[in-house]
Design a protein around this nucleic acid. Structure first.
Lengths: 297, 297
DNA sequence: AGAATTTATAATTTATTTCTATCGACTGAG
DNA sequence: CTCAGTCGATAGAAATAAATTATAAATTCT
């Protein structure tokens, strides 16, 4: 028994004729005859009564008909589902992102992505890099955008360009308008930073220490728990801060915050697109990766 | 795409390996490889990531997997359903019978039939011969057992042996013990008969008229509407009657009723098994027909 | 590094499918 | 009641497809 035989059987049963059923399935009457007869001997049950003016289902044929219809419908569904998948239609793309990517990079990509795949449903999981990679390994997500790479088996990391972390000050701050400030000027300047455990916090601390300004030499007014909190604090004049430029695009535009260069200090962070090593990406995921890559240039 | 390919795909996906999937489906690894690759090019989607230590489903593979499982399960269901049908298991056999067959012939056959097909469900439709044939034509029933044949297209009638209609009298009746009575003695004898419109009533009237005893010459005490009513009337001494011997087996055994031969009068009626012309019977119906045929000998 | 697995591929054999042509049975019109 | 037309069955030839063996290429494990 195979699919072709079932299709032919359905066509013959529906048209009530071997010849017309054959025609409907684009084969000759002879072939139809052979296939039906093959089904009959497979099941050991006569399926159709040949009446001289066509063919009518036997009781056994009626039983087969129901089930065959079901199978053929399911097969249709397979083709539809695979076509949809290829076109990334009605497909759920599950990706994960750590803080900055999930809040400031990925949302910007959505319009472009949805323009290309209008029926795509995207689920974005947020968590720290560790979380994201774990979910990736468990196949809960297909891609992750993270701020650190881990040398572990099973993952592939593609660099995604940099996110620059810059000093930002309040618009009423005396440094507003300065082309740049000296490193030394940072001493004594009240700063509002992310907590040292966060990705951004670590990166900033390391970079300042490397430039000769270890944490103790700085006047840190507050350690705050989120990027948004830091931005608000700086905007309301609590102090200055180092933040991801990606996260303050709007605030700079509205001149609520002002970026200030620090001579001899460039803090930048790479983001990586993480995927399971050696695994093919779905068309939607490929498109996402491509859009992400283009955007960063 | 065909069923074999789907089966192989499922096996490979489940075992996570081309080689083991092939083994599970009793083919060589080479064949599995070819079939998977054929599926992949059919759908234009990579289904499995070959990792060097086996194979894992891609996102597209996951989509196919769900649907393929569904189809293969349905195909299993086909085989089960057809096996059941062949064994007449779980099958409803719908037959029709006119009065005498439905009440006295068919119920006797049930034990034999159910012994052979323990899970058979039989539905017995009762009605006059006309009704039964109509239902047969409308495919509401598969077989009918009727007391008359109609020369109409589309039906086949197989004779089923005879049902003898005999004179029966009350056990206290003076004829009890007589080997036979003369035709002439029937004149003046109080009779309880079926109404002339019924099958039995017609047959009896015709036979008596042919033997020289038209209805007017008989002393008919009552025309009753059912065979059971007639039996009770005779048993309680209201008169004698002509009834189907098939319908009074028990009463004769219990000596509530006594059959009496009438010289020169044999009334017998053929029953026929009616089916749709040129149509194959289901195994259960065939068995029913066979049991019915055997019983009548 | 080398043995043992892994999947892929080429070539061959085997099996199946399909078609053409033809047959015999039945239907329906005249 | 016959004869053209239609129906499904079947044999034989041609075309396709499937499965196998043998081997390659890549990767993993020891």
């Amino acid at each position: 028994m195979n699919l072709k035989q079932l299709e032919i059987f359905l066509a013959v049963a529906e048209t009530g004729s071997f010849s017309r059923g054959a025609e409907a399935t684009f084969i000759t009457q002879s072939t139809a005859s052979q296939h039906i007869s093959s089904l009959e001997s497979d099941f050991g049950v006569r399926l159709l009564d040949r009446t001289g003016r066509g063919a009518l289902l036997t009781e056994g044929g009626k039983v087969l008909f129901q089930h065959a219809r079901q199978v053929i419908d399911d097969v249709q569904a397979i083709h539809q589902a695979m076509r949809r998948f290829k076109g990334a239609e009605d497909v759920e793309l599950r990706i994960g992102g750590s803080n900055i990517p999930a809040n400031y990079m990925i949302p910007e990509l959505l319009p472009v992505l949805l323009e290309r795949f209008p029926t795509l449903r995207l689920t974005l999981i947020q968590g720290d890099s560790r979380d994201i990679l774990e979910k990736l390994a468990r196949e809960e997500i297909e891609l992750g955008v993270v701020g650190s790479r881990f040398d572990e088996e099973g993952f592939e990391f593609a660099p995604l360009g940099r996110d620059e972390i810059s000093l930002v000050v309040n618009r009423r701050h005396p440094w507003n308008g300065r082309k740049s400030v000296e490193l030394a000027e940072l001493e004594g300047e009240p700063l509002v930073l992310r907590e040292p455990g966060s990705g951004t916090g670590r990166t900033v601390n390391e970079a300042l220490a490397k430039a000769g300004l270890p944490p103790q030499t700085l006047k840190v007014t507050a350690h705050l728990g989120s990027n948004e909190a830091v931005k608000h604090a700086v905007a309301s004049g609590l102090g200055s801060s180092f933040v991801s430029l990606l996260s303050v695009g709007k605030e700079i535009e509205r001149e609520e915050l002002v970026p200030v260069k620090v001579k001899g200090l460039t803090i930048s962070r790479r983001f990586y697109l993480a995927s399971r090593a050696g695994r093919e990406l779905s068309p939607a995921a490929k498109a996402f990766a491509k859009v992400l890559g283009e955007k960063r240039k």
